[in-house]
Simulated assay, not measured.
Amino acid sequence: MQPWKISAGLTAALAGSVLLLGGARLEYLSPHWAPILARHGVPVGLHAASALLTVAAAIYAVGRASGLADLGSRVDLAERSVRRGAGDHDLADALRRDAEGDWE
């Protein structure tokens, strides 16, 4: 999996968690959302977008630094070598049966 996909998924999960947990704490503002957003909607939106971008960039940087960028190519290389018959013969046989549709 590529780091940007991991970054996007984790950022969405974190943003969803923050909205779920923070939304309950901001319930007292519900009658005042229209005037608040009318007056401060653009700056709040820009700050929220900036925070999401910062979190996504940080997760992406950690993914690149930890070697997640090369993980997909390494797994693909290992799978191709097993399918060629090098390495674990039981796994190669299981992959062949899976490709043929024999799932027993």
Results as ranks from 00 to 15, higher is better:
Ser7Asn: 01
Gly9Tyr: 05
Gly9Thr: 10
Leu10Ile: 10
Ala12Glu: 05
Ala13Phe: 09
Ala13His: 02
Leu14Met: 12
Ala15Pro: 01
Gly16Val: 01
Ser17Gln: 12
Leu19Met: 11
Leu20Trp: 08
Leu20His: 04
Gly22Ala: 08
Gly22Ser: 10
Gly23Tyr: 01
Gly23Thr: 02
Gly23Val: 00
Glu27Trp: 06
Glu27Lys: 11
Glu27Pro: 00
Tyr28Arg: 12
Tyr28Val: 02
Leu29Phe: 04
Ser30Ile: 14
Pro31Met: 00
Pro31Asn: 08
His32Cys: 11
Trp33Lys: 05
Trp33Ile: 13
Pro35Asn: 05
Ile36Gln: 03
Leu37Gln: 07
Ala38Phe: 07
Ala38Arg: 14
Ala38Tyr: 11
Arg39Ser: 08
His40Gly: 00
Gly41Met: 05
Val42Ala: 10
Pro43Ile: 03
Pro43Ala: 03
Pro43Tyr: 02
Pro43Asn: 01
Val44Pro: 04
Val44Leu: 15
Gly45Ala: 13
Leu46Ile: 04
Leu46Trp: 02
His47Gln: 15
Ala48Cys: 15
Ala49Trp: 04
Ser50Tyr: 02
Ala51Tyr: 02
Ala51Gln: 00
Leu52Phe: 13
Leu53Val: 13
Leu53Tyr: 07
Thr54Ser: 15
Thr54Ile: 10
Val55Met: 08
Ala58Met: 12
Ala58Trp: 07
Ile59Asp: 08
Ile59Phe: 10
Tyr60Leu: 15
Ala61Asp: 04
Val62Leu: 11
Val62Thr: 07
Val62Cys: 09
Gly63Tyr: 00
Arg64His: 08
Arg64Gln: 14
Arg64Glu: 11
Gly67Phe: 04
Leu68Ser: 02
Leu68Glu: 02
Leu68Tyr: 06
Ala69Asn: 12
Ala69Ile: 02
Ala69Pro: 00
Asp70Gln: 13
Leu71Asn: 01
Leu71Ser: 03
Ser73Gln: 15
Arg74Glu: 12
Arg74Met: 06
Val75Asp: 11
Asp76Leu: 05
Asp76Lys: 12
Asp76Phe: 08
Asp76Glu: 11
Leu77Asn: 11
Ala78Glu: 14
Glu79Val: 13
Arg80Pro: 09
Arg80Thr: 12
Arg80Phe: 12
Arg80Ala: 14
Ser81Arg: 14
Ser81Ala: 15
Ser81Pro: 03
Val82Lys: 03
Val82Pro: 02
Val82Leu: 15
Val82Gly: 03
Val82Trp: 01
Val82Arg: 06
Arg84Val: 04
Gly85Glu: 05
Gly85Ser: 07
Ala86Glu: 14
Gly87Leu: 01
Asp88Cys: 00
His89Pro: 14
Ala92Val: 00
Ala92Leu: 07
Asp93Phe: 09
Ala94Asn: 10
Leu95Cys: 04
Arg96Met: 12
Arg96Gly: 02
Arg97Trp: 11
Asp98Met: 07
Asp98Phe: 12
Asp98Tyr: 06
Asp98Leu: 08
Ala99Met: 04
Ala99Trp: 10
Glu100Met: 13
Glu100Val: 11
Gly101Trp: 05
Gly101Val: 03
Gly101Glu: 06
Gly101Tyr: 08
Asp102His: 09
Asp102Cys: 02
Asp102Leu: 13
Glu104Gln: 09
Glu104Ser: 15
